[in-house]
Structure formats: C-alpha cells, structure tokens
Design a binder for these strands. Structure first.
Length: 180
DNA sequence: CCTCATGTAAACACGG
DNA sequence: CCCGTGTTTACATGAG
C-alpha cells in the first residue's frame, strides 16, 4: 500500500544493551498540524526528510543511525541476522539476567526482539533504497529477520500500523518517492 | 503518585 | 461483501 518513510522514531535508552535511540517527543497534546496537504491523497507514506521538522529533537539520533544499522545487514539485504544461535527461552521467560544483559542482536527465534515496533519499522524503512516502502514490505522485512513474528502474536501488524500512524516520524507518501 | 513510552486490542473510515 | 490499509481510542504496564 503506501510506502512509508521514516524520519525519526522514538526510543530512549531503555534496556541495557539494546535500544539506542532517543528523541521523539510529543510535546503536549497534538493539535493540528500545518500539514502541507500537497498531493498524497491516495495511500502512500513517505517521509520527506526536511520540511516538517517540528521536533528537531528527534533528528539527533537519526544521524547516528549508521551504527544502528551496522548491526544489520545493510549492504546486502536478504541476510538474515538471525544467527542460528542457541536461544533458550520457552516464551516469556526472562530467565537469567533481569533484563537482557547479553547481546541484543543475534538470537531471535521465538522470542520477541529487543527492539520496539518503532525501531523495527525504522530499520526496515532505512534499509530500503529510497527510504520508503509499502506496509507489506515492512511486514516482510520484519518477518525475515525476526521469525518470531511468523507466529505467536496476533495483531502485531496492527501494532505496526498503529506505530506508523502514531509516530509523526513516519509519513505517508504517494507511490513513488519522487527523487530522493 | 504522576507522567510518559510502549504494546495491544479494537472500532471505524475508505478504497479496491 | 470482504480485505487491506490507515487513523484513532482506550486500556494495561513498566520505567522514571
């Protein structure tokens, strides 16, 4: 459906070892955005980089995204970072370590990724060539690297869409990112 | 105790 | 009429 572009998701340093983004703030209550209106009526999401930069606060970590994505297979996609490592955990069993003191990356089979939906979506979008992709692609991208979603929860897609709409970091664009 | 971020479930509007 | 998408509420939690 609509390609989406991400700008700056949220995320604040949370669990040690994971999450490394900051920014995104909602200020107080959202009222009405100026909204350019422009074209974009059908269904497409996009982020237009500049413009709309209401909250520069978020843009901070964006620049460091390089590190973030480094952990992923950015250069060549299709590379499952899902290392076939061991993964103990029945399902929701924190087991050792109160949190995840281990490597957040790697290890993901049946357990929930240490990333929030916002990050997941952001990563998917960032990994795309044009920084924008349709919702379906986002689903696939996530599914590819996190088999966890292949089963288990029902409604994770709903959450993805919810985040897409909730965060102002993601913009809907008309099919075709124009020139980026 | 309150606020904020996140996760989910669900109600809807809409277009195909 | 059903489905996918997008928006929006409401509620539950956990961290701070």
């Amino acid at each position: 459906m609509g390609p989406v572009t991400g700008m700056t998701p949220d995320k604040k340093a949370k669990t040690p070892g994971a999450e490394k983004a900051a920014g995104l703030r909602q200020s107080h209550r959202m009222g009405s955005l100026p909204d350019a209106g422009d074209a974009g009526r059908p269904k497409a999401t996009v982020v237009d980089s500049d413009s709309a930069d209401d909250e520069l606060t978020n843009l901070n970590w964006l620049h460091e995204s390089t590190n973030l994505l480094t952990n992923f297979s950015l250069g060549s996609e299709g590379l499952p970072i899902v290392s076939p490592l061991y993964d103990i955990e029945g399902d929701s069993v924190p087991s050792f370590s109160p949190s995840c003191y281990q490597n957040p990356e790697k290890k993901s089979s049946t357990s929930k990724p240490p990333y929030s939906f916002s990050l997941l979506i952001y990563m998917a979008i960032e990994h795309s060539p044009n920084k924008s992709l349709p919702v379906k692609e986002i689903y696939s991208w996530i599914l590819e690297r996190f088999p966890y979603f292949a089963t288990a929860p029902t409604g994770w897609k709903n959450s993805v869409r919810h985040n897409l709409s909730l965060n102002k970091c993601f913009r809907k664009v008309e099919r075709k990112p124009v020139a980026r």
